[in-house]
Write a protein that binds this DNA or RNA. Structure first.
Lengths: 212, 212
DNA sequence: CCAAAAGTGTTAAAGCTACACCCATGG
DNA sequence: CCATGGGTGTAGCTTTAACACTTTTGG
């Protein structure tokens, strides 16, 4: 064993806005890769667990609570100059509940995942893998709850699915599938907005991860 | 930040033998948890990547090559006495190609996964998660190749599936599904053994991970 | 010719895809 | 009464599950 290693956590925070999946990036102020866009992250403080460290990052950047957070993978050797282990996470947050931290020279911003600049480290690859995992889990879990407000219409849920899947879905089949899974249930309330029939509101039956 | 953390890799090595899924355990010779059974692992040497460290552990214990190795997750705080990060992997090896390392006071042995003793740390939970992942990936990837020799009959492959899934499968449907995926192909050779019709031998078309 | 495992095809049920019309509301 | 988005059912197709007999070999 050489020098003692450094452990960092990295969090890819996703939201859906304007019909597209967005990821939160920050402009790096420290070495290495100063000035480049990158995923938020920081060194691990061994007073807390790794998960707590990732959650803390997430809250610092977005203020969001009631999110979905999952570990992706751990890599070594991101940084040539010292022994580094990076534990990567991804999170799903509701766009409207986010208040980005602004100020100083710390600049967080949302970027559409299908139109990213070149990022520091291997962050582009990391995001690709996270997106692939999210797409896959959309099919057999309820993790989309992280992207939705507590109450929503079926149409809003479908819009979120379409943004992630990057393509249109059939309205009737979508509703049938969703209501048959038992993952969502009607609240009993309606939403009236505009010159048309009001929409039923739904909620997730659980806001913990559930597999089908 | 307090004291500098320690990084360890842990590998759950699986094989199928005697109709059951087996995991390799070692009896701990060092503190903590001396004398308890546990998964093999060791401290990370920052001269190598994390994956290389896991691979090295694997080879040391089993001598196996051409295996399937995948990262599971990373945890912190296994050990109360110091800041520890443990990166867990699982591997699939062919039982017959394994030569267990013996000698000194290091005692590796195979245990059936559905009949494990209480293990050190959270190793029981780790194994459960690995098994769940393997079961799931059996359905949509070719990772079972790690458990099989380079040539095998359809029946042998089915036996392996049945051991992992813990239940019988229909022979006709199994063969149809397997040959239709394109994951395996006939070698052209036959295996004669015993007083019955010889069986075609197959190989995996790829010995890298492939998704369906 | 007998025993033992290999190999093969069909039918029914379930699930998925595609598709068009009526409903409730606001203006 | 018109425009707008909400809500529903069905028919064809594809996929999966269940199931029994014939083939090849060694002894």
């Amino acid at each position: 064993m050489n020098k003692s290693p450094t452990v960092a956590t990295i969090v890819a925070i996703f939201a859906v806005a304007e019909g597209h999946m967005q990821v939160l990036l920050v402009s790096r102020t420290g070495e290495p890769a100063v000035g480049q866009w990158a995923l938020p992250g920081g060194f691990w403080d061994d007073n807390e667990s790794l998960n707590a460290s990732a959650t803390r990052k997430l809250v610092e950047e977005t203020g969001a609570t009631d999110v979905y957070l999952e570990q992706l993978f751990t890599t070594s050797g991101l940084d040539q100059t010292q022994a580094t282990v990076a534990v990567a996470y991804f999170a799903l947050v509701e766009a409207r509940s986010v208040r980005l931290r602004e100020g100083e020279d710390w600049r967080p911003a949302w970027f559409a995942v299908d139109d990213l600049p070149h990022l520091a480290f291997d962050n582009n690859r990391l995001i690709e893998q996270a997106v692939a995992r999210i797409r896959a889990k959309l099919e057999y879990t309820n993790i989309v709850y992280g992207l939705m407000p507590s109450e929503f219409t079926v149409r809003e849920l479908q819009t979120t699915y379409e943004a992630i899947m990057n393509g249109p879905l059939d309205r009737r089949n979508f509703r049938k599938k969703m209501t048959s899974t038992g993952l969502i249930e009607p609240t009993g309330e309606m939403r009236r907005e505009g010159a048309h029939r009001p929409a039923q509101l739904f909620r997730f039956t659980s806001r913990e991860q559930v597999f089908l």
